[in-house]
Design a protein around this nucleic acid. Structure first.
Lengths: 120, 120, 120, 120
DNA sequence: GTGGTCTAGACCACA
DNA sequence: GTGGTCTAGACCACC
């Protein structure tokens, strides 16, 4: 795993975990890897993972039980919001890419429909 | 710049240059940086750039004039096709991402329209 | 327990015991811990406790029976006065705090009423 | 300065700074001591101060300008809210103390009024 | 100079 | 074992 995108490593890890949760790789209520295991897996310092987990907890995406571990939230509403946010980000960056390629915002839905039909 | 995506570096450079052309950073008929300059800019071996330019020429995206340098094609149809291909790739990977987030192919155009409206 | 408030330790202990009596942790007529036990509990020299007990006796808050130990006074009037004094101190320091936060002496009772209502 | 209240040091520092702001010792827009100076002053590690400042920034009580320092927020509404919160905490703990001394919640405003009158 | 991030390694409370 | 805190010391970007 590389972390040279310019963003702080702990933020990048937050994004990775959010993606895993939003896409269902990590499920509602599931235990995350321990701070130490995650640190070993991603080859970063445990404090960095700690910070990532802390940030996720602040956002109520995960919760921790002392001595037990860190878990994906049980609250469905937060998970839905998370998916919505990630989708919105994906859409926005996609649209920016498309505009850079010379397409107009408003014609994009139509182009997508075409592409869907082609693929069928 | 990192080139550790697994793909051969020369292919990655081909993609970078195609993106620059498709987005208009490099314009129709414009001279590309010399092999040597490009190698310096991307911190790779000049032979690698040479190979990338060769590939681009094979695809008629650029053409070479001995002693003058390498230039973006003058043929509008090729540029259009290039943009179309890049757009199609973007759309496909975007749709895969959205499906992973739990959205159905067919509902995506509608979601995009909503997001456009929100952003206004 | 820390005793680094600047005040003599024996005075601080007098205050601790008065608080325990005023709040009913130590009841009317109840035996106080022996000097030796109290010294162990608070991790101070027994002579210090001896001095604190002496001070409390001087104020008629406790009385000593040779060979039996030290006891909270039986006189209700002294206990009432003790509570009144502690309340007055609490009120004064509370009001100073509130004034420092920018509240006027005279508006404080009203603010408290509001807070009581909120808490209901 | 002692930090053995059981609470994490960084939280205690957050409280100290909030008190300084709420009581006007630190004014609207004023620069806080640098992380390093504060660490020296309070004899803790700079990272601990960093964490405290980060927490305060998260709560919008302060903001930072890279290379310039950390400053008390300019937003009056946040400062008002801060004072309100600190007052509420003071009131609640004061009332708990008074109840422990045998006074009823509802009679406290009256007792305060008496104490004010006595002091005049 | 400022804050921001990261690593290394320690100790603690909780279970 | 788990997460939570703290220290020490380094390097970075920005001003």
């Amino acid at each position: 795993m590389n972390f040279d995108s310019g963003l702080p490593i702990y933020i990048q890890i937050v994004e990775i975990i959010k993606t895993r949760i939003a896409t269902g790789i990590l499920k509602r209520g599931e235990k995350l890897p321990s701070v130490r295991d995650m640190a070993t897996e991603l080859k970063v310092n445990p404090n960095t993972i700690q910070r990532s987990y802390g940030e996720l907890e602040r956002e109520n995406v995960v919760f921790t039980q002392r001595g037990m571990g860190t878990f994906v939230t049980e609250e469905e509403s937060i998970l839905e919001e998370l998916k919505g946010n990630m989708a919105r980000e994906k859409i926005i960056s996609f649209m920016e890419d498309m505009e850079r390629l010379g397409y107009n915002r408003d014609e994009i839905p139509a182009i997508i429909k075409e592409t869907i039909l082609e693929g069928k």
